[in-house]
């Protein structure tokens, strides 16, 4: 079999295992906690729901009187048929449909902010390492380290306060203007970009320093390596050495780092959504916490985990394309 395919399948196997662990954690956590999970979970339902609905919900989470392994199987069966239960705060909408709309917005916002931040950060890091002792190298790292030390959501509060409430340059909440209808039309698309600009900028500012510093440090290591000296000795232009020999090679470990930091940065992105009342996963998360909507909370944990695992696999594919050594 082709080695690249074999590698990707091996990674896929790992992510499937990680997904199974997340699914099992989701099943275990309520049962490991003090108190009766069913009581806690449906406390808010009392009087509002028919016994038939409660029984259906119990089935979904395997909260039956069966032995544990049977409960687990029941839970898995429902899960794999796409049943994540019914949201308490959005009764009677199923969790899966609520998450589906939120997921698109989150992927759009966090995805574009992450990619912009990564590209900008790595470019700045590469340039800082290239011009050692220059302005970029001496001022930017501490400045960005300071900016990165602010909590994402706090930065979001400040930015929204100044540019939204104070100056009125940007919308205060939601993902697209009222009166436009989601679809492929320019008022909606432009409006969506306008609404995403401020939250995305916040995420970029808060995460830029991390990427820049990581890239700068890898670059410094690579600039000291023999193949850079050798490329320069051959009279290659500085530009070519920088792009083809230094930055390209330094990018590889940072792409792997990008995959690993994804879960962490996403946490910050979720909190940012909350501040901007952006209708993504983060906003659903706080809604779930406030309403003690356990089915929604757990559904969010699962879908976000799956999204991160999927993104990691994508990163693996990119690495494979860029680095011939993994194709061995």
């Amino acid at each position: 079999m082709n080695r690249s395919v074999e590698y990707l399948l091996r990674r896929l196997g790992f992510y499937s295992l990680a997904a199974m662990v997340a699914i099992t954690l989701n099943f275990m956590i309520p049962r490991m906690m003090p108190g009766d999970p069913a009581q806690i979970m449906f406390a808010r339902f009392k009087g509002e729901m028919s016994p038939a609905v409660i029984t259906a919900m119990r089935e979904t989470f395997g909260l039956t009187n069966d032995p544990m392994w049977q409960q687990y199987l029941t839970y898995l069966k429902h899960l794999f048929s796409g049943d994540l239960g019914i949201s308490i705060s959005n009764f009677p909408k199923p969790v899966i449909s609520i998450i589906a709309t939120g997921l698109t917005w989150s992927i759009f916002l966090a995805g574009s902010a992450l990619i912009i931040s990564f590209i900008l950060g790595t470019s700045l890091g590469a340039l800082a390492a290239w011009r050692r002792g220059g302005i970029l190298d001496s001022i930017m790292p501490p400045l960005l380290a300071l900016l990165g030390a602010f909590p994402y959501f706090w930065m979001a509060m400040l930015v929204l306060f100044v540019f939204g409430f104070g100056l009125g340059w940007f919308p205060l909440w939601h993902a697209y203007p009222d009166g436009t209808s989601p679809g492929f039309n320019s008022p909606f698309i432009l409006g969506a970009l306008y609404h995403a600009a401020l939250p995305a900028a916040t995420m970029v500012i808060a995460s830029l320093g991390g990427w820049m510093l990581a890239m700068r440090n890898t670059m410094i290591g690579i600039l000291g390596s023999d193949y850079i000296t050798y490329a320069r000795a051959r009279g290659l232009t500085s530009r070519r050495v920088l792009i083809r020999y230094a930055a390209r090679n330094a990018l590889l470990p940072n792409i792997t780092g990008f995959g690993m930091a994804l879960g962490f940065v996403l946490g910050g992105a979720l909190l940012t959504e909350i501040i901007f009342s952006y209708p993504g996963q983060g906003y659903l998360l706080i809604q779930a916490v406030r309403a003690q909507d356990y089915p929604l909370m757990q559904g969010l944990f699962l879908t976000i985990t799956l999204a991160v695992l999927g993104a990691n696999w994508f990163v693996d594919i990119v690495t494979l394309l860029l680095d011939p050594r993994t194709r061995r």
Binding site: F14, Y15, L17, A18, V21, A22, L25, N26, I29, P30, M33, P34, I40, G259, M260, L262, G263, F264, L266, G267, G268, L270, L271, L285, V289, Q292, Y294, M297, Q298, L300, F301, I304, T305, V308, L309, N312
Partner: peptide
């Protein structure tokens, strides 16, 4: 490695929501 790829915040939220 499994714990590394697991997104921290959602897991923390679920755990903290169930615990007192």
């Amino acid at each position: 490695n499994i714990f590394l790829v697991m997104p921290g915040l959602p897991l923390m939220v679920v755990l903290a929501a169930w615990l007192p």
